[in-house]
Design a protein around this nucleic acid. Sequence first.
DNA 1: ATCTAAAATATGTCCTACATATAAAATTAA
DNA 2: TTAATTTTATATGTAGGACATATTTTAGAT
Lengths: 252, 252
Amino acid sequence: MNVLSFQCFYQKFATNYHIAMSSKIKPIKSVSLVEQVEQRILEFLKENRFKSGDSLPGEIELAENLGVSRNIVRESLSRLRMLGVVESKKRKGMFIAEPDILSGIERIMDPDLLGEEAMQHIFELRLVLEVGMSELLFIRKNDSDVDNLQEIVDREANDPLCKTDLQTRLAHEIEFHSYLYKMSGNGTLNRFQSMLLPVFHYMMQQESKSAAQPKRGSISHNDLVETLRSGTAYEFRENMRNHLTPHFSKLS
Amino acid sequence: MNVLSFQCFYQKFATNYHIAMSSKIKPIKSVSLVEQVEQRILEFLKENRFKSGDSLPGEIELAENLGVSRNIVRESLSRLRMLGVVESKKRKGMFIAEPDILSGIERIMDPDLLGEEAMQHIFELRLVLEVGMSELLFIRKNDSDVDNLQEIVDREANDPLCKTDLQTRLAHEIEFHSYLYKMSGNGTLNRFQSMLLPVFHYMMQQESKSAAQPKRGSISHNDLVETLRSGTAYEFRENMRNHLTPHFSKLS
DNA sequence: ATCTAAAATATGTCCTACATATAAAATTAA
DNA sequence: TTAATTTTATATGTAGGACATATTTTAGAT
């Protein structure tokens, strides 16, 4: 299917150059043309429900009908391309694609970019996810998963550096928990966790630096594996909560 | 602090117009200049740790030193602006800002844009969050929160339409659960949930359409409020899990 | 009919010019 | 001298034209 008739889409955009503000006070931030066009295109794509693969009008046609320069349209499309909403091929044109929920997050999930508050939120989010994830794990776990997890735990237990080196301990910690996300069978959740690692790593170091008490919960990784093998989702949830107690106890 | 000395940043970018592929096979997707520049700028911002508010070089200077046109730089910066990594003022130039983790998601969280798999992942994610959220609620709840929640539940119980109209039932359902996120004290989590609503709404309608059995768990909203008032985080977690049983039971 | 070469086309990139807003400087008024 | 006002300088915002590049389609040759 090809996208035709953009009439409703184009309506009176070319005439209204500036944002309309009938009787209201002037807004603080005047929205740039790029943002307006971006929103306009997004709304259009939402209203008419295009299938992935449908083709869009060319940039020039869009620009002419919207009454803006091709540059503006290109900047808007560049943003949508980043989000995965559209794709473009050299001579074919632009197509609808299925957006990637995490493509935006992926770019900015970094301790050197995010603020302290955002990182705190993310760290809490991680705790929430790991406790709430239990049900998914029990629905989708299989024997080889548990075996692999057991192997990870054994490697950790036999690593002599684990007692002394924080980095080593962190690496094992991350490997274990990462595998849980993988087992969840939820690709988005799994990818999110892997993106979250730098922030997680940063927060853990901060934590160990300030408190100087890397006290662990009474539930070990090994206990968790055992619960996963022969326990219930309900038990695993509470054990995970217990395992994460050192982190929960720092919240306020 | 002003950003000076971009030497390391600019290094041999102007010379290498195309991506280097020394001995490897040609990649499937040749990365566009915009993406390269976007990545380069992001890396630069990560490596040197700028405070929010630091000023960046102007577009023209960036373009010249990177060996690309101003258009390319502008498209890249437009993306970063969308993510909230940078902000720009008319005569001042561009500044570092604290990125918004959810700005990308906000734009695409729509049933008409996302694919079925993505929506399934998001729906599962919602279940995970609400079960895992319990601890945050008990850490941050206060009396007025519980009262407000009780009021929401009472309104639901006294709404006669609740028995017959699916939309009404959904509205109450959403109001209740939304308030829980608000109570979590985690702004990012709360905003995420509000963005998630359209997808949630869509999935619930799909569910009620297919199964025609809107059977509820044995735990009601009223039970959850009571648990929140005088129970423990542990009890609330399990009650919430029970409340969501109709949804969990459809997973595979 | 098959393979090959040329043309057509939409995106990708570059360039120049001007519009616009606003901080900073210069000027005038009190 | 100080305060208010006007002017100027500057970086982003927008416009439009030109060419590069890749790839589909068409035309042509074997």
